[in-house]
């Protein structure tokens, strides 16, 4: 069992709930430009993750459990822009994103089952119709 993933998930969900991002209303208040808190959440997280991303490989030869520190790489192509646009439409309609939807369920938000069903269906359609099974990673 890779228990660090469970602990990481617990902290992640706690942080999402604490930050308010598990409430679609608060995400929508950012997207409607009345409360810019979401940028602070992202900024604080990025500050910490970028520090560990660049510092940990210098301090430790390899990760505690994993084989090596992996570079985070993203290709750039039309899928980046088209996918992000479609993501933006959904985010603007609902105030939901993948992590916040899961945390929202944990806060007892039962209607978010509709959102989670949508997330699975969207991921299914993507994989079924546009899924590329010739590439190895991601």
């Amino acid at each position: 069992m890779k228990l660090h993933y469970l602990v990481g998930g617990l902290l992640f969900g706690f942080g999402l709930a604490f930050s308010g991002m598990a409430k679609p209303e608060i995400v929508l208040s950012f997207l409607q430009l009345t409360d810019f808190g979401l940028l602070l959440v992202m900024g604080a997280a990025v500050l910490i993750v970028s520090t560990s991303y660049f510092l940990l490989p210098c301090l430790m030869r390899k990760p505690i459990v994993g084989a090596e520190f992996v570079k985070y790489t993203q290709p750039f192509d039309k899928r980046t822009v088209i996918g992000a646009s479609i993501f933006g439409v959904g985010w603007g309609i609902s105030g939901l994103c993948p992590g916040s939807a899961l945390a929202s369920l944990g806060m007892g938000n039962l209607p978010v089952f509709f959102g989670i069903a949508g997330l699975f269906l969207g991921a299914y359609i993507q994989g079924r119709i546009f899924g590329d099974y010739s590439t190895s990673s991601k």
């Binding site: 899928r79 980046t80 996918g83 993501f87 509709f114 997330l119 269906l121 969207g122 993507q126």
Partner: peptide, 14 residues
């Protein structure tokens, strides 16, 4: 509807 678009878009844009 939002979940559907977000789920598709996130996976499409990786």
């Amino acid at each position: 509807l939002g979940g559907l678009f977000v789920g598709f878009g996130a996976r499409f844009s990786r």
